[in-house]
Amino acid sequence: MSRSTDGSMNSEVADCFSGKRAAADLARSAQRRPSGKWSSPSWRVESPERSVRHRAQSLGLKRTTLNKILRKDLRFHLYRIQVRHKLTPEDKNRRVKMAKWFTKHPAVFDRLWFSDEAHFWLSGHVNSRNAVHWGSKVPDKVLTKPLHSEKVSAWIAMRRGGGLIGPFFFENERGVAQTLNAERYVGTALRPFWEELQRKNGVDVNEEWIQQDGATPHTAAASRAWLQERFPDRVISLKEEVKWAPHSPDLSPLDFFLWGYLKARVYAEKPKTSEQLKRAIIMEVGRTPTEMVGRAVDHLETVRLPQVIRRSGAHTEHLL
């Protein structure tokens, strides 16, 4: 029997987890030495996706005993596997190419407006995890929400040192959200953005850049022509000379930071109408510190993009 200097049975547990010893041997060891301390953070567990309950059954141990061994003695942690879209080899190559371009042009971050739109659903603040009822019998109540909830579609641009411009809402004259197309994209988002950009102190519009993803309204001929007229050779998008890699929400500060930050605060107000929802969005955008926006862009530049290069374009967000 192999033991550590403090009397623990590191090798016994490690051998059993790695399949070198029978489960029954570990069970007998556990019964002989119930207070034995097994400690090493370096042991490998075969079939790490297997549940503690099934692993305990195969080892002949109580689930609570095995839980203690895994967490306290071996210092393992339970990690939730995240679901992400599939990246093709071409997707990964594009992500690396884009990351390397940014690495070669770091000064662009001080002039680049990241932009995007997002939906805010009126029923988005419902959280069933917080809907509890203590009692002696099942309560006769349920949470309800509309089958087709009202929504608000907002467009925002953000830049390090420049804060936020927006929100601009895609809606008709009655205030009802509209499906985005190229005409609405230019008229409802890009034009007012350009007008506000021209009014910003300390901003030279002839030096500013703009980024957008590859959504169809963004890459339509009319949208591209409008942008190139005002941002000649300073547009980062799917069909431009400097290409934004598709399937890369983890590299957009609006996706990995801003939308989640805003929604957490907007839904905390529990808006009851679309007008209340829009007012809450406008209020929270106005409250968002410019320094916080800058830190999100800093994180992209110094952490996420280098990670993309190191991982040859593979997913990175689950490791951050």
Rank of each mutant, 00 (worst) to 15 (best):
W121F: 15
E208A: 15
V285W: 07
Q198S: 02
A14F: 01
L320P: 01
V205W: 06
V293G: 00
I282F: 08
L300Y: 09
W155D: 09
G214H: 10
R95I: 10
H299Y: 10
E269D: 09
K145N: 08
W38P: 00
T88N: 14
Q31D: 05
N181Y: 05
V152Q: 03
A14G: 11
M98I: 02
K62H: 12
R55H: 04
T302A: 07
R21A: 09
Y185R: 07
T64C: 05
P306H: 11
S8Q: 03
D213W: 08
D140I: 00
E291P: 01
R3Q: 13
D73V: 04
S223W: 14
E301S: 09
F114I: 00
G19F: 01
R265T: 03
W226Y: 12
I156W: 02
R184K: 14
M283F: 08
A107P: 00
S136D: 06
W259N: 03
A30C: 12
E240T: 10
W101Q: 05
H119A: 11
A118M: 13
H315Y: 14
N10K: 09
G214F: 12
L26P: 01
R191W: 06
T273F: 07
L254T: 02
L319C: 11
F170R: 03
V203S: 10
L305H: 09
R234E: 14
W43D: 05
V138P: 03
P232L: 07
V303C: 06
E317V: 10
I281M: 11
R28C: 04
V297E: 11
W259R: 14
Y185Q: 01
T144W: 12
P253E: 02
K272S: 06
T216N: 14
H77I: 13
R50M: 11
K86P: 04
K100T: 13
G294H: 04
V13D: 00
S312F: 04
E12S: 07
I236C: 07
R75L: 12
R33M: 01
N93A: 15
V142C: 12
F193I: 11
N201L: 10
P41Y: 08
V235K: 06
S51K: 05
A314G: 13
S128F: 15
K100I: 15
A264K: 08
L143F: 08
E208S: 13
G7R: 02
V152T: 08
F169L: 07
G60M: 03
N93F: 03
T316D: 06
A268S: 10
A215R: 07
K68G: 06
R3G: 02
A56P: 01
Q212M: 12
V142G: 00
Q211F: 09
E12C: 02
I156V: 15
Q82V: 14
D140G: 00
T216F: 02
A221D: 13
V308K: 11
D6Q: 13
S252H: 11
V266W: 01
N67P: 04
L254H: 05
L254E: 02
Q198P: 00
F109Q: 03
S312D: 15
R160G: 06
N201A: 14
G202R: 09
Q198N: 00
A225D: 13
N10E: 10
K141Y: 14
S47P: 02
L87T: 12
F169S: 05
A157T: 01
T216H: 11
R33V: 01
